[in-house]
Structures are given as C-alpha cells and as structure tokens.
Nucleic acid binder design. Structure first.
Lengths: 237, 237
DNA sequence: ACAAAAGTGTTTAGTATACACCCATGC
DNA sequence: GCATGGGTGTATACTAAACACTTTTGT
C-alpha cells in the first residue's frame, strides 16, 4: 500500500442554536489574537478544539463544548466533516493557531449541531467571559470556515427535522404559544406560513397538547400555551 | 486552552453501490493478513485509506477509490465521520494495520458514498485482483466497522434521495424498464410498491421519458424502455 | 395452451393551499 | 376607542393508496 503516513489533526466544532422566542441564536467562543501587523483583534469562532488521542468523537464534542462555554447536557448530532486544505489558511487564523498550539498544517473538523431552549436557566450556564450568544441573521465574519459550517448545520437540521419533528421542540420552551412555534418554523425553513392552516395543523397533531394556561399581561388578546408530548409523538410514528 | 495535541490519523472510506438490474452491490477491497495465531486469512473491507497531509478530503476519496479499485470519475458524497475509539480495536484489524503502517492508535474515517450503473463498461474498470462487487444482502463480516458504515450509507442515501430524486438514476442504465426502476426503489426503501400506482407516477413525471424501444427476446411480453432526462428534471423543481 | 412478466383505471381518503374577519387585552 | 396580535372555517386542488384483470411473447 505504502501510503504516506498522514499526520493530520482532528477537531470537533459545535453549532449550538438557541431560540429565545423571537430569533435563532448561535453560541460563539470569543477569540483574541494578533494579526500579521501585530495588532490585537477580537473576533468569534464556533466552540471547537482538537480531540484527545483516545476519545470518541461524540465525547470530544461534549467535552469541548463544556470547556469552552460552560454548556453541558445537550444532545450533539454529528452532521458533516470539513477538510478543505485551505480552511485554516487565512493569515489571521494561522497566527492564532500558532499561538495556541504547535504549527499545524491542516485541521479536519467534525461538526456537530445542537438545538436548545435559550431560557434564563441556560443563559446562566454560559460563561460570558469566553462565550456569547449572537443572532444568526446578524453574524459577522467568523474564524476559519465557521460561517460555512453554520450554513451547512442549518441545511442538516432541515433535513433531520423532516424525518424527526421532535427535533424542533428542543428549541421551544416547555410551554410555547402557537405563534412562537410558527415563527420558529418560518425561520428554520425560511418560508412564511399561513396562520389559519398552521392552527389547523397543530390542532390535529396528537403530540401538541393545548393547555388551559394563557399569556399574562400582554397588550392584546392573550395567547394559549401548548406543550409537546414526547410520548405521544413516539407513539404516533 | 492547553488541549493536549491530538495526533490522530484520518482516513476516507468509500461505499460504492452499483445496481445490475436485479440487486444492489457494493464494491469491496480484498484484504489478506495474519490473525493472532499467525494463520493467514482473506476477507473484505471498504476501499479506503489514510489521507495525505495536504489533500482535500474529497480529493482523497477519489484518489483512494481509484488506487484501490480502478474506479474513477464517479461522484462521491461525504455522509458521515466515524470516530469511535474502539473502531480499530478488533485483533485481526490491529494486526493488519501494524503490517500496513506504523502502529496506529485510532483512525477517524470520513465516509463517502457513490451510486453507479453496474454495467459491463464499469465491470472492466474494476481491478478484480484487488477488488470485487458483492451483493449487499449477502455480505459477511467486513473489516473494522465497515458493515456499520454501509448501513449508515444506505440511510444517508435515502435521506438524500428524498431531496434529490436524480440521485437514484445514477444507479440505472441509460435505458431502463419500469420494473427495473421499481425494483430498485423497493430495495432502497425496503418497501413493496404497487405496480399500477408506480406506472401512473412515472407517466406523469416529465423527466422520465418513454422510448419506442422495447426489450428483445424475452419469454414474455417485452417491456418498454425509459430514460431519465436530467435537463427536464432540473427544470421541474 | 400455458407460463411469465407487462401493462392498464377508478374510487376513496387524506393532505395542502388559498383566503378575510372577529376577539381579547392594555394603554 | 384604538392599536396589537390571537384565533377561527370552508372550499378547492392535489397526492397517496387500495384494488384485479387483460396483453404480449416464447416455449
């Protein structure tokens, strides 16, 4: 065979998306470094890092996410590997890598996504010294090919959600209104949905349970809350 | 950060599926080695190998497939990375790896699939000294976690084909009969299809063109041939 | 003439889409 | 009382599923 022994580096990167009832947000790591002129800069990257020698990919993803952001106990789903040879060749990125670890030629990264409720409980677990939620539709240029990785994550999530609608409910609070749910679907599928048809749809889904509880103190008719019934969902497919 | 420098190895593996008009087949590399008692064995693995230091993943997949089987000019689609830490720990596999290259702790592999017409032209390009087509439903135990990788490839292909039906036609000859097409769908989706409904369906798809040509010399009513019109397909979605 | 596979229509149920007005609440 | 978002029903078009017999060809 005699293939040259490739000695590459492997990392994992996590695209953690959170919905706050209004918009989709992504969890980013703060990164600071020097550019080629020695100027200090601060920008953002996905939480990700090299894996250990003897560690499952999935375990590495959980570990790295926890270490870099404080977030733990979320379901991470592998969706794609990124191994273009120029993905780490931007000068700023090269400098940053050299500061962080030995000279690295190229890093193949295995990307994971996770969908979470962006509520106050979760807000607290995020270490804001080093990590930050940013609106998905207002992202600047991220490190490496991380903008691309996020775009691919969204595609993967759409595909996945088509086969397993339960996925989406990870983004919603336990009690959610029909319009929160609808807005979320509109964002994910980038498509307007008819309000009446949407109500009709959810009313005939056995796993979306209307509650007696309603919104409080809003300056308009109070919306009903619903909840997602995991058991009923599993039973219905 | 101070993450220990992981020094892992990266490979690509290719799941090339071919349809011969009757059944789905997968292209395998022959492998021979010694087991722990020094006994010689011969078994099969997916065509795959370590990547070069400075090579795109996608390029590596094409190169490796060509080198190990002779097959080139096929579309390879990345679908999943496999990095369980015990995926290379079977004793037979450990011995084989040590013979082939330096001691390797763990290999993360990026898996690709490809769908091809298994016709005589392709048969000729396969180097039968080192590679061989085997029926998908009659596979034995393959090296490493390659049975798992093939199963995951099928799942990925189903998902992908739902979004892009053109994919399936890579498996069919240029001229195909309705029942070849139907049998293929039945195999891929593991589900019987109603013959009449199937005919109705394809008759109303603008990109499946009925030809005047029919089967020759069959001991029953000769079936009509159809072809897939790529242009009409792209136009229709 | 018989074996073997090809080909053909109709009915029914369910799902997706389009569309406009009244309701409840806080200020 | 008005601004704001919540909530409701019907008609139509399309798609999916169930179902059995006749046709063509070689032996």
């Amino acid at each position: 065979m005699a293939a040259p022994l490739a000695n590459n580096h492997i990392s994992v990167d996590c695209v953690v998306l959170g919905f706050d009832g209004e918009s989709l947000n992504v969890l980013l790591s703060k990164r600071s470094g020097c550019d080629s002129n020695g100027k200090v800069f601060m920008d953002y990257k996905l939480p990700g890092s090299l894996i250990y020698q003897d560690e499952d990919l999935d375990d590495a993803a959980s570990r790295v996410l926890k270490e870099l952001t404080g977030v733990s106990d979320v379901t991470l789903t592998q969706f794609k590997a990124f191994g273009s040879k120029d993905r780490t060749s931007n000068l700023r990125d090269v400098h940053w890598l050299e500061k962080e670890q030995a000279k690295v030629k190229r890093i193949v990264t295995i990307a994971y996504f996770s969908l979470v409720k962006l509520d106050k409980t979760l807000e607290k677990t995020v270490n804001t010294e080093v990590a930050e939620w940013q609106r998905l539709n207002q992202l600047g240029r991220l490190a490496f090919d991380h903008n691309l990785i996020i775009a691919e994550a969204l595609k993967a999530i759409r595909r996945e959600a088509d086969n397993n609608r339960a996925l989406i409910f990870n983004l919603l609070p336990k009690k959610f209104t029909a319009s929160q749910f609808r807005m979320l679907m509109e964002i994910i599928y980038d498509k307007q949905l008819d309000v009446r048809n949407f109500h009709k749809k959810i009313s005939q889904l056995s796993y979306i349970i209307p509650l007696d509880e309603r919104q409080q103190g809003v300056a308009h008719r109070a919306a009903r809350y619903y909840r997602f019934d995991k058991k009923a969902y599993s039973g219905s497919r």
